[in-house]
Every structure is written in structure tokens, then in C-alpha cells.
Amino acid sequence: MRRSLPIVSTLIVLLAASYFLIPLYATFQFSLQMVRGQWSFEAYRSVFNSDVFAATVTFSTIASLAAILVGVLIVVPTAYWVRLRLPRWRPVVEFVSLMPLIIPPVVLVFGYVRLFGSTSYLPLTLSNAGTNTLLVAGYVVLSLPYMYRAVDNGMAAIDIKTLTEAAEILGASRFRTIAAVIFPNVRSAIVSGAFLSFSISFGEFVIASLLNRPAFGPYLVQIGQDRAYEPAALAIMSFALIWACMVLMQLFAARKPGGRILPRLIRPSARSVTP
């Protein structure tokens, strides 16, 4: 039996999609119009030829990666310990991890500037390295809700307590248990958390701008004020980058142990299981 096309739902989907797709298409089209009277990628070429672009992208990438590393080192042991030994504290920890969604980054960065400013015992804002540290710390805080949620979900999927006990009774130390058993089993969760963090901190504006760092976010805003076609090209590229992150996240989340690092897109026929 052929099902007739559900008209109303299709209309709603199309309407919702156009809300997102039409501005995107318009931006894309505009970004191709830098040379009068013809379509070209001139705007993209101009962006890629700029030294500032390369410098800010490099800076933001390094800062984001540092934030991911620090975030993982904080979040994974915390989520593990809370699940294993302090299950009653889980709601509290979860609430704390959600705080960055409630407190605006402006408040956070002003707090940093007051706390670590020139009159502080720890005047981090006086040096470049110190300010970079503050930037990374800010990124860690911003990505905390996503990182914690992803890792905690990953840990919910495996039986943390029994796996820990199984490793312990075989003689493993606590460190070895985390390194050889827990970590590899939540790796895909960590990776998806990492991609989310990356997409948040890579284009972040408020913290980077107020700490006066040469990051990608402030560069984007500056270009938006100075140029016409390049910002459109940059916006399209940012979208592409975020989408790439999401696709990678999906692929890693679906990865089975013993599979490849990058999973095959076409699954081999399932192996039979004999009882």
C-alpha cells in the first residue's frame, strides 16, 4: 500500500528548514559575488591569503585543544569517582557542571580580571602566558556542561562499578583500572565531548575579546566591521567546520571496539554468533 505524502507535516518541515537554509544560501551566494558580474571564490582566496586569519586560526586551535585536554583531565576522573563512590552527589555535580549555561561569559571574564588583575596576589593578566592560561580556563568552564554530560553518559552505558571490581580483583591498581579499563571504554564519549568543546571554544568571542587575545572569534567580528564579502565566506567556513565536527562525533560515537580508528562507512555483514 502506498502511503500518501503527509502534507501538513511536510509543510512544517519545509518551513522550519527554510528558516535555516534560506539565510545560509543567501550568505553563500553573497560570498561568491566579490568580483563584480561573475561567480568566484575570490572572497575565500582573500581570507586564506590573510596572515591574520592563519594566526588567529592557529591560536584558537591551540587554545581549544588545550581546553579539551584540561577539561578531559578534570571531567573524566570526576565523573568516574562520582559514579563509583559518591552517587548521592551526582545531582550536585551535575548542577555545578550546568552553571556555565546560566552565568554569562561576561560575568565570568570580569570575575577573572578582578581576581587575577594587577592588584591580585596572582596577577595573571600582566603576562601573555598568564592571560592565555585564563583564556583556556574560561574555555574549560564554557565547555564543562557538554563535556561532563558526554562523559557521564558514556559512563552510564558501561557498568563502571562491576568493571572496576573486575579489574581490581585481577590485581589492577586504581590508576591502572582507569587507564586500561575505564578510559578506553568512554573514549568515544570523550571524543564527542571534545568535538563539542572545540566547536564552542573555537569561535568564542566574549572571553577572547575582553582578555584581548588574538583569537578567531574577535577576528571574525573585526572583519565583519571592515569588509563586505569576507565575513560571508568566513561564516560559511565556520558552518562547514562545525558540521565536520558533528559528523566526526557521530562516527566516533558509533565505533565498536576492535574497529578502525575511523569506522568504515559500509558495515561488513554481521558475523554470526554461535550459542
Binding site: D159, T162, E165, A166, E168, I169, L170, A180, N185
Partner: peptide, 21 residues
């Protein structure tokens, strides 16, 4: 502690390490 007792244990939920062959 358990990791010093040299005891073997089998759990109801198998508890094999999913990341290892």
C-alpha cells in the same frame, strides 16, 4: 585490598572488558 588477595571472581553481569578481545 582486593587487588592484593589473589582471588578470582566471576560476576553475574559477566563484566568482561568491552574494549579488549
Amino acid at each position: 585490598p582486593p587487588n592484593r588477595r589473589r582471588i578470582g571472581m566471576v560476576f553475574q553481569a559477566y563484566a568482561l572488558f568491552p574494549n579488549m578481545s
